[in-house]
Amino acid sequence: MPVQQNDNIFLRLLKFSNVALVVTFCAMVVSVLISYPYADLFSLQTQIFAHISTIVIAAFLKVSYVTRCLAQYNLGLEVR
């Protein structure tokens, strides 16, 4: 696989990971807000769903961060 094509793949992965990080972060904030400070405004079923989704979203957030680090490392960028 040529180097240019490899870089192109990791650039696309980096862009996708950045978008996924933003989306999962926003979803995490919403699920935590529904679960705790605004719980009295939502039904019990919604609260249960928010609590469960907090765990699932956290997993996606971590995977997004790891793929971002992987892309940065392979592009020779500073991994942080």
Score class of each variant (00 low, 15 high):
L44I: 14
K15I: 14
L61I: 01
N74V: 02
T67N: 11
S43M: 11
I9C: 05
Y36M: 07
V29A: 14
V3W: 04
V30R: 05
I55N: 06
V3F: 10
E78V: 15
Q5F: 12
L61D: 03
V30Y: 04
Q72A: 05
C69A: 14
L11D: 04
V79P: 06
A27L: 11
E78M: 09
V3M: 08
F25G: 10
Y36R: 01
L33C: 11
T54G: 07
V32E: 07
L11P: 00
L14C: 03
V22E: 03
V29W: 07
L75S: 06
E78T: 14
E78Q: 10
C69S: 13
F60A: 05
N6L: 10
E78S: 09
V63P: 00
C69I: 07
P2H: 10
I52M: 03
Q72N: 03
V30G: 01
Q4D: 15
V79H: 05
V66S: 08
R12G: 09
L33N: 08
Y73Q: 06
K62M: 12
V30E: 03
V79M: 08
H51Y: 00
F42Q: 07
T54R: 02
F16E: 08
F49R: 01
V19H: 06
K62Y: 09
C26M: 10
L21E: 12
D40K: 10
I55W: 05
Y36V: 15
L41D: 11
L13D: 15
I9Y: 15
L75M: 05
A59R: 05
Q47A: 02
I9R: 12
D7V: 01
G76D: 07
A58D: 00
Y73M: 06
P37F: 03
F10W: 08
V3E: 15
V23T: 08
D40A: 09
Q47C: 04
F25E: 05
A58L: 13
L21C: 13
I55P: 01
I9W: 13
V63N: 00
P2N: 15
I52F: 02
D40G: 12
V3L: 13
V30L: 14
Q45V: 08
N18P: 02
V3N: 10
Y38W: 09
R68I: 05
Q45N: 15
K15W: 14
L11C: 04
K15S: 15
F16V: 09
L75N: 04
N6F: 08
T46E: 06
V29I: 15
Y65L: 09
L44E: 15
L13M: 12
